[in-house]
Design a protein around this nucleic acid. Structure first.
Lengths: 343, 343
DNA sequence: GTGAAAGCGCTAACAA
DNA sequence: TTGTTAGCGCTTTCAC
């Protein structure tokens, strides 16, 4: 059923029917009611491609997910963000155009989507500290919003981010207050801004407490179980095991836990472990199942709000960049103990 | 740059330029070369919305991901499938329109996307044994392909699936051949067809070996760490611990492993564990890191090929349903030992 | 081998 | 308050 057919059936012009459907004020309310009823009855929905051609708005947002050559896997946190964004888009009548691609092809995707007029804006995922995409997208000219931040740039851009620095600051302070002097950080790839921010928070807490950071206790590593395993084994074998560890990801913590068990070390008794993470459950060494506030829900919320910010940018045309820092819940297991309980 | 501008610049009609660009044979090759060069120089790309309106093809495929009310998380396997599909779509000039939505809203999404003419077909994720979507989509009339299968239906539909039944058959046979008589199955939610198929394979192996299955050793549970933990504890505490377990998911296996450790049981020595899963690394009890062939790559491959099947369905209009069963690599850790090595 | 012209389904001036 | 008339940017008959 097209507008033409519908309006013929109603004995009205396409214009009037279109106006009635789109809520224009100049339509007689009786007419509008008739139109709405007929539209509902015929299950009429405007052809989105035709609307877009006529209005010049694609009514779609492009999400481009670059897959790093080695880390050949879609990050579940991204999926969570997208789930939130999807909800907003639907509510606002937008669609989400997703492309998952090898990193080296991403630029082509952005350019192609933009010049085909398939999207009205972009969501940028997994920003690096120094990310070429800011400049690229500013040149392309479509509005975009970054999920996360870029550290080194003079370009202006809009973003929404969780406060990774703040949460790692708090995590480190917690351990310091428990009396720990040697605290290791097992962090993600620090080319990625979020990991870099986490390190900044960690160091900030140490410095504020008058402690210096020790680069031999700082690790930047892919977020895999085997990373956690081998780092922990190395620490133990080198006799450098700290009394506390902050682990950037649940999956890494699994490796840590395993290595500790192998070495006869017990979490909480021998070493306090904080996991900042996205998973919903965690076991401490005693087998209890503590409740966690997960960052997962924060990320979903960020997706929800980030999408709204992007749509605002798209609608407004020209305003300054929008920026929002969201509080990130710190996920702390019950596997932290005051230092004097360590042997 | 539009066709109009480009053709004006070339002193040709829009028709000729369009034909040259789209590879129609009746264009003079010299003309075509001129056109292609000018198009490249001007970075011309046709407005996709206009193309779609003119051709009646949206050049997009809809992926609708239903979020179960409780399992409020995007399954990483789905992400992997979509990564594969995205690659195919891009190669074929299609876009992927993604919607992540509460389960109860999915039907509206399908209807809306179809009647707005925003997509040419659908990919169906997470099919249940008895899934209303087959009937719904057959009624809607757009081509669709199911990633997975539906067990109870008379409707015809196209699908691509991994051979879950076959891989669990093999896993169970492996354990039987090692001499095990009591083998537990910790499975996912058996409303989902893939989990149901896994159980069928498990039972099939037992029956073929002249062993009866024991429903007290069969568990259908959400794929979480705590499921694995509590099931294992219950088995131990009830004195029903089998000598071998087949665990449907890595994350569940973590809970199993933990519970076993708590109870003083050692994997491989006391109980053999097979994990059918998607993760890339796994530690057996001795801390070695065995190599695995992951189903992850199979799933990515399925996405690649499934998308192609769907595009074929879209292109061909009317042909019978296409169906393809892919071999799924079984992921086996080194934590299986012949029964006589168990104490 | 090339072009004129109609039309895809809608929106948006401009008239009435 | 409603209708007439152009487009939006492309594809596709149909003529030449």
């Amino acid at each position: 059923m097209s507008l033409k057919e519908l309006s013929a059936q109603l004995g009205l012009s396409q214009t009037t029917v279109s106006r009635a459907l789109n809520g224009y004020p100049e339509v007689n309310e009786a007419t509008r009611a008739r139109v709405l009823q007929a539209a509902a009855k015929n299950n009429y929905r405007p052809n989105q491609r035709a609307v877009s051609l006529a209005t010049g708005r694609a009514m779609a947002v492009g999400h481009v997910i670059p897959l790093a050559p080695r880390q050949n896997v879609v990050n579940p946190i991204m999926a969570e963000f997208i789930a939130g964004a999807s909800h907003t888009y639907r509510k606002m009548g937008y669609e989400l155009t997703l492309t998952i691609t090898a990193e080296e092809d991403a630029e082509n995707i952005y350019r192609s989507l933009a010049s085909k007029r398939s999207v009205d804006g972009f969501m940028v995922h997994s920003p690096l500290r120094n990310d070429y995409r800011i400049e690229l997208l500013n040149k392309i000219g479509l509005p975009f919003l970054v999920h996360g931040r870029v550290a080194d740039t003079d370009e202006s851009y809009s973003w929404i981010d969780l406060d990774n620095q703040g949460s790692f600051l708090k995590a480190t302070q917690l351990l310091i207050n428990l009396g720990h002097k040697k605290i290791a950080l097992i962090n993600g790839n620090e080319e990625l801004t979020y990991a870099w921010h986490r390190k900044l928070g960690y160091r900030q807490a140490l410095l504020a407490a008058g402690m210096d950071f020790d680069e031999e206790l700082e690790f930047s590593t892919p977020l895999t179980e085997s990373s956690g395993y081998s780092i922990t084994r190395e620490l133990v074998e080198a006799g450098k095991m700290p009394t506390a560890m902050i682990v950037s990801s649940y999956i890494v913590a699994l490796g840590v836990r395993h290595a500790l068990a192998e070495c006869g070390l017990r979490i909480r008794d021998d070493v306090s472990v904080i996991t900042h993470d996205d998973e919903l459950s965690y076991f401490d060494n005693a087998g209890s199942v503590p409740q966690f506030t997960s960052t997962r829900s924060s990320v979903r919320e960020a997706g929800l709000r980030g999408a709204q910010m992007l749509l605002d940018l798209i609608a407004q045309g020209e305003t300054g960049p929008q920026q929002q820092l969201m509080h990130a819940e710190l996920v702390i297991g019950s596997s932290t103990a005051p230092l004097d309980s360590h042997p």
